[in-house]
């Protein structure tokens, strides 16, 4: 069964057609990417999936629950991290995670927080305030928060956007490892080709609020007659089509 089914989503902000008829699915254990240039409509799509923005039309079904009618039931089994969101700045890392362990109604918050500190290798930061951490460390805490409830669907909006190449590479490796081990589904946005090639089974190219091409990284490169996703990206972003 698909964990996420997005059908004909549309969203207009004034004159801007931010999302213009987007449909896709994420199967159990599948890693799907929305790849595209800035302003393509990736974040708006994710925010509609999460119920933060209401679509003008179209539907989102998560774990078989309609987002407009059964938001809590759907969101309890998903989780979210974004490079542009932070956590309460003055709280210590373990306090932040304890708060979210409660917000996701975990049975044993303290045990789960300890597990996450270990999994993300941030145990030594537990008593540091979130605001004092480096970007790489903050990203780890955000991911710890996003994995607390052992989500069946992990939604990530440009998870490595604020990181230097070394830190980004570590986070990617960690996420790929996690995904392989846990069998959880992921929906990731990115404009980083390498990230997407490495972590995702299926890539949707988004441009101007529409999905303009779909396939695995290799399939897309083949279809466009180029060597890698980066070349596909340039081709699509500049308005070109398949070879």
């Amino acid at each position: 069964m698909d964990v996420l089914t997005v059908t004909a989503l549309r969203k207009r902000f004034g004159p801007v057609e931010a999302v213009d008829g987007v449909s896709f699915t994420v199967g159990a254990g599948e890693a799907v990417a929305l790849l595209g240039p800035n302003g393509a409509g990736k974040t708006t799509t994710l925010h509609m999936v999460l119920g933060l923005t209401r679509p003008d039309s179209g539907t989102v079904e998560m774990f078989g629950h309609d987002m407009t009618r059964d938001r809590a039931r759907a969101l309890a089994r998903a989780n979210f991290a974004a490079s542009y969101l932070h956590l309460p700045a003055v709280l210590r890392v373990e306090e932040v995670l304890t708060v979210y362990a409660h917000l996701y109604a975990l049975r044993r918050p303290a045990v789960r927080v300890a597990e996450m500190l270990e999994l993300l290798e941030i145990g030594h930061l537990r008593r540091q305030r979130f605001a004092r951490l480096s970007s790489g460390q903050q990203t780890r805490v955000l991911l710890a928060k996003a994995l607390l409830n052992d989500p069946g669907l992990l939604i990530l909006d440009e998870p490595t956007a604020n990181l230097d190449p070394d830190a980004a590479d570590r986070i990617r490796r960690l996420l790929a490892e996690q995904a392989a081990r846990s069998g959880r589904a992921m929906l990731i946005t990115s404009h980083n080709m390498r990230e997407v090639e490495r972590m995702c089974d299926r890539v949707h190219f988004v441009s101007g609020g529409r999905i303009v091409a779909t396939g695995s990284a290799a399939e897309l490169a083949g279809a466009y007659g180029v060597d890698d996703l980066e070349a596909v990206f340039l081709r699509v972003a500049r308005g070109g089509g398949p070879a």
């Binding site: 999460l50 119920g51 933060l52 938001r71 809590a72 039931r73 969101l75 309890a76 989780n79 979210f80 974004a82 542009y84 969101l85 932070h86 956590l87 309460p88 700045a89 979210y100 917000l103 996701y104 109604a105 928060k145």
Partner: peptide
Amino acid sequence: SRNLLNVFAGP
């Protein structure tokens, strides 16, 4: 703190 969306993205 830019934490609000994290809260509202939960149940």
